[in-house]
Amino acid sequence: MVVGDASGAGPQPLLSVRRLKVFHGKFEAVHGVDMDVGEGEIVSIIGANGAGKSSLMKAIIGQVDRVEGDIRFDGQSLAGRATADIVAGGIALIPEGRRLFPSLSVEENLALGWEVGRKGEITLDDVFELFPILRERRRQKARELSGGQQQMVAVGRAMLSNPRLLLCDEISLGLAPTIINDIYKVIPSIRERGIGIIVVDQDIGRSLAVADRFYCMLEGDFSLTGRPRETDRDTVMKHYFGL
C-alpha cells in the first residue's frame, strides 16, 4: 500500500522513493523517507546543514554504500545499480561544488555529459543557446572560467546527459546573486522539456520560488511537505529549524 502524500505527480511518478534509509558506515543519515517527483515537476528539498539532503541525492544517483527501502525510477527499482547505469537510464546530477574536470576544455566537459548520458534531443547547440558565453569559451580549460561560468558548464554537462530527472545539488553556492539569477532562469526552461527536477539549495527563498512542491528535511526525516505558494514562511522556518 502506497500512502499518497502531497504529491502533484501523476498516477505513476517519475521518481518514487519509499521508506528510504541511507547509511554512511553505521551512521544512519536518512531515516525512512517517502518522496515523489513527477515529469516536468520541480521539487525543492530544503533543510539545514547535515539534515540529510546530500545523502538523499547521493542515494538516488547510486553513490552511497548502503540504502534500505525502495527507489523507483519510471517504475524500475534502482537498487544495486551502478551510477553509470543510472545516469545512462536518465538521471543526471549537478554535483555540489560543480566538480568540473579542470584540465579539460569546456567543450570536453560538456561532451562527457553526452557520453555518459541517455543520448536524446538536447545537443551541444542547445546548451550554447542557453549559455552563449560558453560557446565563446568552448576551447578554454574549465579551470580558467569564473565560478558562474563553471556552474553553467556543470548545468550544461548534466543537461547533455539528456536526463528525465535532474538533480541540482547546491547550484548557487559561492556565486554572486546576479549569476545565481542567470542560473535559476534556465531551470523552468529545462522543466518545459518534461524533465523532473530536484533542487537542493541553501538559498531557501530562491529554491522555493522556483519549486512546485517542497520537502523540508530535519535530522534525516521530512518534517514538512507542501506547495511553496500554499505554505507560509513561518511554518517553513519552524520545521526547518525543528522548533
Binding site: I61, A82, A84, R99, P102, E108, L112, G113, G117
Partner: peptide, 19 residues
C-alpha cells in the same frame, strides 16, 4: 578525454556516471 577526466577528479567522474 575520459581518461584525462578521471585523472583530474576521480570522484567527480563517478558522480556524473563516468565509471
Amino acid at each position: 578525454a575520459k581518461i584525462r577526466a578521471v585523472s583530474d577528479d576521480v570522484d567527480a567522474a563517478d558522480l556524473i556516471g563516468l565509471s
